[in-house]
């Protein structure tokens, strides 16, 4: 089996300025590897939403990206407060984001639904007081 290309990023909490660095770095890497533009876009959008969630809700975290020949797995890991009710959080329009996030154009309760929409598989492992890991899979072939 061919080893995947692995990328790692730090996501700093409350840092809206550098939010997006992990997803734009991943986007560049996928483009360089010749992945189709549609798949690159889906991966970048899903990852950016997850990254922003970690910035807004969890004081940052880490991103791990594993690029295989036909898919990418993106894992956003935080040590934040956890999600009390995942099915509620998955509903469009449900949001617990602070006003600062809303003023910046986020916090409309679209983040998790948008990740689901742009990925082939999405899973959330969360524990109250411990943190949340969002794992996103995007396949390159439609």
């Amino acid at each position: 089996m061919i080893e995947p290309v692995k990328l790692e990023y730090k996501i700093r909490g409350s840092d809206f300025i550098n939010a997006g660095e992990a997803s734009s770095g991943t986007k560049k890497a996928l483009n360089r590897l010749g992945v189709s533009p549609a798949a690159v876009k889906r991966a970048a959008i899903a990852m950016y939403e997850a990254e922003i969630n970690a910035v807004i809700h969890a004081d940052g975290g880490e991103a791990e990206v594993f690029i295989y020949s036909d898919h990418v797995i993106i894992r956003i890991i935080d040590q934040g407060p956890g999600i009390p009710d995942v099915s509620l959080a998955m509903q469009e329009g449900w949001s617990t984001a602070p006003d600062i996030a809303r003023e910046m154009g986020f916090g409309a309760g679209m983040g998790l639904p948008n990740i689901k929409k742009h990925s082939d598989d999405m899973s959330i492992e969360t524990e109250i007081g411990k943190g949340t890991t969002v794992t996103i899979t995007v396949r390159f072939q439609v």
Binding site: F16, I17, A19, G20, S23, S24, K27, K41, A44, I45, Y48, I52, E103, M104, G105, F106
Partner: peptide, 16 residues
Amino acid sequence: MTILNSINVIAVAVLT
């Protein structure tokens, strides 16, 4: 077209 001028606007412009 937007009235948003936060730093995230640039990230989204890059994404799209």
